[in-house]
Design a protein around this nucleic acid. Structure first.
Lengths: 128, 128
DNA sequence: TTTCTTATTGCGAATCTTTTGCATTTAGGA
DNA sequence: TCCTAAATGCAAAAGATTCGCAATAAGAAA
């Protein structure tokens, strides 16, 4: 995958992709860096994730915190429902196309929608 | 408004609300602070905006940048379509309720949705 | 395999946004 | 006018992310 995307397949990047593949929810850069400790430091984890994002191997997830999360870009684009209380994250699929069309209809003066970010916040069953 | 919300009506906060009332799009904290220069410094602009947000007078808008934007909380909750090229912002209204219901349906294990964030990115008519 | 080019990395320092501490000022009720 | 808690300014801290640069290593070529 890495070579095909024009990258060198370094231990750090491979480890990074592997950890993302096993993660069950979007991961903070700091967490990712710790997971590949010894193979890639924090600075280069930032650089690697950004590079991987640019070629579409990973996606940025903005959960409204001060820090960015990343997840492996597999399957279709989806959103998240985050528990306010425990932080649990569930994947959510929504009628994307229709929503973007609606946005375009609502926004006079715009010709196209390239992307959107949509995250939900609420309570999971295990929390009060 | 300020007194009614339990605040002291200081020059700084009044100026802040006035500038937000005239702004045509969500404003960065730094920009807001410059606009009320002399009446409120950067630190207290942060404090004031957060306080105003807690009582519902302003809303936070997260456009996916490294910094937070704020807008006056008037009218119904809405979203934004941001031009990738020039940064122009248009307001967008979407069928909120139905979307949140759909999210809840899609996310097993969740009992409620308190809020969501939704922003669109694309190109306005004036840009390439 | 060895060599060579340059992408990648580590590390320190810088930058940017946001928060905190604290002494001083001030809005607004008594 | 007086008094107290809310607000404020300023300096410094904290957290996230980026930059600069010399050292290292992946992978193509010999």
């Amino acid at each position: 995958m890495l070579r095909h995307a024009g990258f060198r397949a370094t231990y750090g990047r491979v480890a990074l992709l592997e950890m993302l593949a096993h993660a069950r929810k979007p991961v903070r850069v700091e967490t990712a860096a710790k997971a590949v400790r010894g193979k890639l430091d924090l600075t280069n984890t930032y650089r690697a994730l950004e590079a991987l994002r640019r070629v579409g191997l990973v996606r940025r997830v903005d959960l409204g915190h001060a820090h960015t999360h990343y997840e492996l870009a597999e399957g279709k684009h989806h959103h998240h429902l985050v528990c306010d209380s425990c932080g649990k994250v569930a994947d959510v699929e929504i009628q994307e196309k229709e929503m973007e069309r609606a946005a375009l209809r609502a926004a006079r003066d715009f010709k196209s929608v390239r992307a959107h970010s949509l995250e939900f916040f609420g309570l999971c069953n295990a929390c009060v």
